[in-house]
Nucleic acid binder design. Structure first.
Lengths: 192, 192
DNA sequence: GTCCTTTGTCAACGTTTGTTGACTTTCAGG
DNA sequence: CCTGAAAGTCAACAAACGTTGACAAAGGAC
């Protein structure tokens, strides 16, 4: 039973790399099996099928290393993780996973549910107050939008910026998201 | 030759409805043919294949009705179209199209190229100035992020808001996107 | 060594998918 | 009416997909 766990882990790891990069419906199981150096049949055997493998890959994808247990501000921590390094951090992978799989008809609902449980709810609890939900949702929207535009769509003016400038852009957007006041209703300053 | 154009149009229309809603790789050609009331074989005959049909559906998807020809501010116009009605506007469909297909390995590059040509470049030309690219990219990022969070992910705190509140949220985020100053580099106000 | 559980291998199945080619129907021009 | 191009129908293909079941190898218990 020890050996089987190793194969399970190799499959989950390969599944993450593939699903996060190309999206659920664009990844054949044979690709994952080949990358893991394992026979395809073992996927259905161990995880019950493709969807089961995705659930296993999704499980733990939101277990951030000490983000909500410390006394630090999770918003600032997340922002810092996204701004600073070019190296693929833990949070970066989660965002790529969301962008690639949250709109899929098959596994989208799973992703959204896990997201709500492991990310949005804790962030709301940290912020507290009446309009916490609005600010948290805007925070996530800004983060996803910026990541999609820079990494996913490679937009000119965002993807070609040095990380210092991108950090300033992201902070500017996130500040707006967190400073939104629900009670104020409609505020001054139209478009442009 | 007149009749064939009608069938072509019916196919393109059905293709848009399906591709925009479920994404390129999740739509079988037979679904589109059935929705259009047409035989599947005609797709390969008329458009050369699935990718050709998508290109035909993509073509014209960015031809906004009088957005860049008038003297009005396109940023404000787009923002207004997204804030006000519950009815599915033209711009809304484009955003849904982007969110569902821009990350696809097959047609993603096509979508991004068309997006750059028909949306980002005109917006940059309108804004002008040195850092126009940065602001335009942030504008689009904010718009896509908010739409993804509200319509796509149904985030609590954004999807359950009345349209008046959502309009204020969107305007708040977009204002930040357009007010970003590239030259200022790093500015004051960290996370939270 | 023998047994039995665990683990991995292999071939095949039934579907679905995009695409193709041969055939039939439609219909305007002579 | 006759003809031929245009438009549509139908069956079938090959490939790819997820999944299954029968079988072989491995490895510890006794």
């Amino acid at each position: 039973m020890r050996k089987a766990d190793q194969t399970r882990d190799k499959l989950v790891e390969a599944a993450r790399a593939a699903f996060w990069a190309r999206g659920y419906s664009n990844v054949p199981l044979r690709d994952i099996a080949r990358a893991a150096g394992v026979d395809v049949a073992l996927i259905s055997r161990y995880f019950g099928g493709k969807q089961g493998l995705f659930e296993a890959a999704l499980n733990g994808a939101f277990d951030w290393p000490d983000l909500f247990d410390g006394t630090e501000d999770p918003f600032g921590t997340i922002l810092a993780k996204f701004s600073n390094p070019a190296k693929e951090g833990f949070e970066r992978q989660v965002v790529r996973m969301i962008l690639m799989n949250a709109t899929d008809p098959d596994v989208g609902p799973l992703v959204r549910a896990e997201m709500e449980r492991k990310l949005l709810a804790p962030l709301r609890a940290r912020l507290g107050g009446e309009g916490a939900a609005a600010n948290v949702a805007l925070f996530v929207a800004a983060l996803l939008g910026a990541s999609l535009a820079r990494q996913g769509l490679q937009l000119h003016g965002l993807a070609d910026q040095p990380s210092a400038v991108y950090a300033a852009q992201l902070r500017h957007l996130v500040d707006a998201a967190l400073s939104f006041d629900v009670a104020a209703g409609t505020q001054a300053g139209a478009g442009r």
